[in-house]
Amino acid sequence: MSPLQKVGRWIGEHLVLALGLLVLIYMFVPIAIVALMSFNDPSSRNVYKFDGFTLHNWLNPCEPSGMCASVVRSVEIGLLATLVATILGTLAAFALVRHRFAGRGPLNTLIILPMAAPEIVLGSSMLALFVSAGFGGKLGFVTIFIAHVTFCLSFVIITVRARLSGLDDNLEQAAMDLYATENQTFWRVTFPLVFPGILGAALLSFSLSFDDFIITNLNAGQTVTFPMYVWGVAQRGIPMQVNVIGTAMFVIAVTIVLGSEITRRRRAKAAA
């Protein structure tokens, strides 16, 4: 190998990684700005730039009127939609993996479609239903909840189904072999092993619901969720507390995910 080729190879080895890291940085720049702006002491509401450092926003997160109420509403909807979608989706995933029945093909398509349609179309069709069913004037918490369950459901089914079909069949057979009845096998072996998948699906559901804007905006009526609040104030000048909420969400979620990853790594290390 000529020195030139060596240099070329070295660059090839490290350039891709370096470029990849640059892309990651690109993905995190806006988040860094959000975190930074959560400490901003703005000179005027209309100028969106960093003027000075303050803890005021973090100490008074609920100062902007209506913001915390919208966060609470989003959390409520998120929890409720997650609960329903997770329960229904988990049952469906068990049906799809563990039972044979007619109509699996069409059902699989039905499950994928809500994820494949653009949000604006999904939202429009929900609105069309609510309007034609006479709920056009009663849009609000319930219609948002229904819409959120609908798009979370597919994600839950797919996530839990993946976990369930990756489960080693032998484990359940071993449990039965070791005197566990069908019920005991399910609750002592199957469920604990599928649970991480269900939990992951629930977290995904919650974040999808909490973050949804396009579908919600069409079906919300006068109800204001957190993304809708942000949308509303975006036109007038954003209170810095919005960044506090954004940063807090990020920190909480990253802590959960990194925490579990670190535990996993530690275990792997202990095993080695």
């Binding site: 080693d168 032998n170 484990l171 057979q173 071993a174 449990a175 039965m176 072999d177 070791l178 005197y179 566990a180 009845t181 072996v189 604990p192 092993l193």
Partner: peptide, 20 residues
């Protein structure tokens, strides 16, 4: 008889130890 009803136990090929 169901597997859990018989006085027979198995050592599985891949051991099938409960990971949790």
């Amino acid at each position: 008889d169901k597997p859990y009803k018989r006085p027979v136990n198995t050592v599985f090929q891949n051991y099938a130890l409960f990971p949790h």
